[in-house]
Amino acid sequence: MAVESCKFGIVYRRFKPHLFMVLAQVGYTFLYFLTEASFNRGMNPHVHITYRHIVAGVVMLPFAYFLERKLRPKLTLPMFIEIFVLSLLGVGLTLNMYFASLRYTSPTFLSSMVNTIASLTFIAAVVLRLEAIDVTSPRGMAKILGTLVSLTGVMTMTLYKGPILRKLWGAVVHIEGNKIHENWLKGTILTAASCVTWSIWYIMQAFTLKKYPAQLSLTTWMSFIGAAQSAVFTACIEHKRTAWIIGFDINLWCIIYAGVVCSGLIIFIQLWCTEEKGPVFVTMFNPLSTVLVALLAYFVLGEELYLGSIVGAAIAIIGLYLLLWGKERDQEVQIKSQEPLHLTYEEQKESKLHVIISEEKALQMDP
Rank of each mutant, 00 (worst) to 15 (best):
Glu346Gly: 06
Met113Ile: 13
Met60Leu: 14
Ala132Asp: 10
Tyr257Phe: 15
Pro213Glu: 05
Ala56Trp: 00
Ser309Ala: 14
Glu359Leu: 12
Thr158Leu: 15
Glu4Gly: 04
Gln348Trp: 13
Leu295Gly: 09
Phe233Ser: 10
Tyr51Ser: 00
Leu218Val: 08
Ile318Cys: 14
Ser289Met: 14
Leu61Val: 03
Thr35Met: 14
Ala193Glu: 01
Thr234Asp: 08
Pro78Ser: 09
Ser5Arg: 11
Thr158Ser: 12
Asp366Arg: 14
His342Arg: 14
Phe285Met: 02
Glu131Gln: 12
Thr158Arg: 02
Thr76Pro: 07
Phe122Pro: 05
Ala37Trp: 10
Ile246Lys: 01
Val126Trp: 03
Ala124Asn: 08
His18Asn: 12
Glu36Met: 09
Leu323Cys: 14
Asn44Trp: 00
Val261Thr: 04
Lys352Trp: 10
Ser106Asp: 09
Val58Lys: 03
Lys327Phe: 02
Val114Asn: 08
Leu128Ser: 14
Ser223Leu: 06
Ser101Phe: 11
Tyr345Cys: 06
Gly140His: 06
Val260Tyr: 02
Val355Leu: 14
Ser223Val: 04
Ala171Leu: 10
Gly319Asn: 03
Gly319Asp: 06
Ile144Asn: 01
Arg41Met: 13
Met222Ala: 02
Leu271Cys: 06
Leu252Tyr: 04
Gly278Asp: 01
Lys74Glu: 09
Gln331Cys: 10
Thr188Trp: 08
Tyr12Val: 12
Glu275Thr: 02
Ala297Gln: 06
Phe268Ile: 06
Phe207Thr: 10
Pro367Arg: 07
Gly177His: 01
Leu95Val: 05
Leu159Ile: 13
Phe281Asn: 05
Asp330Leu: 08
Leu120Cys: 10
Leu322Arg: 03
Thr152Phe: 12
Tyr51Cys: 09
Trp198Gly: 05
Glu131Thr: 05
Ala316Ile: 08
Leu363Cys: 10
Phe80Leu: 11
Pro17Met: 06
Gly162Ser: 04
Gly92His: 02
Val282Asn: 04
Ala125His: 07
Glu303Asp: 15
Val154Ser: 05
Trp201Met: 13
Phe30Gln: 06
Lys361His: 13
Leu128Tyr: 13
Leu102Arg: 00
Pro367Thr: 06
Arg241Asn: 13
Asn178Glu: 11
Thr136Tyr: 13
Ile335Phe: 11
Glu182Pro: 01
Pro17Ile: 07
Leu165Pro: 08
Met1Ser: 14
Thr219Glu: 02
Ala118Ser: 15
Glu303Thr: 10
Pro78Phe: 09
Gly140Ala: 10
Gly259Leu: 02
